[in-house]
């Protein structure tokens, strides 16, 4: 027989686990190793909201998102952009339907994102912290 106290503890554990899964430490933002631009969270939010299209040095941002079904996408949206995945989808739909900006290119899986970023000087993406290696530069975590 499960008591109310056990249920409450269980709910607390689930809640803590859920909140920990959205911590920024699990996801890191990566750029090409040759990219010398500085980047802070405000710039990242503007970039992934379509409000900024260029790097500070004038080159064009090449945004990379992971697939919607991949949990890292929701983690990134929540931890770095401060929004739910559904809200980000609406933001990009508005950008598209007003001719403001096209959504980021979807590249699924940490390895594929690393490869895409390593191969494009202007690309920016995100991967799980444990996947980071010397092929890319971690710029935010």
């Amino acid at each position: 027989m499960i008591t109310k106290k056990q249920l409450a503890m269980g709910a607390l554990v689930v809640g803590l686990a859920a909140s920990m899964s959205a911590q920024a430490g699990d996801v890191v933002v990566i750029v090409n190793k040759a990219n010398a631009n500085a980047l802070d969270k405000d710039f990242l939010i503007k970039a992934y909201s379509g409000d900024v299209k260029n790097w500070p040095d004038g080159s064009t941002l090449q945004l990379i998102d992971q697939g919607e079904e991949n949990p890292i996408r929701a983690e990134f949206d929540s931890a770095f952009l401060g929004k739910q995945l559904s809200k980000m989808k609406i933001t990009w739909a508005k950008n598209t339907f007003t001719g403001k900006a096209l959504p980021p290119k979807v590249v699924d899986g940490d390895d594929a994102v690393k490869k895409a970023v390593a191969g494009n000087k202007d690309a920016i993406g995100y991967i799980g912290a444990s996947s980071a290696d010397s092929t890319v530069k971690v710029i935010l975590k």
Binding site: G67, E68, K89, W92, A93, T96, L102, P103, V106
Partner: peptide, 17 residues
């Protein structure tokens, strides 16, 4: 389907509502 619904090559995308 994700936001990039119809992607014709690297240069052209078609969206709709």
């Amino acid at each position: 389907v994700p936001a990039s619904a119809v992607d014709i090559g690297d240069r052209t995308e078609i969206h709709g509502f």
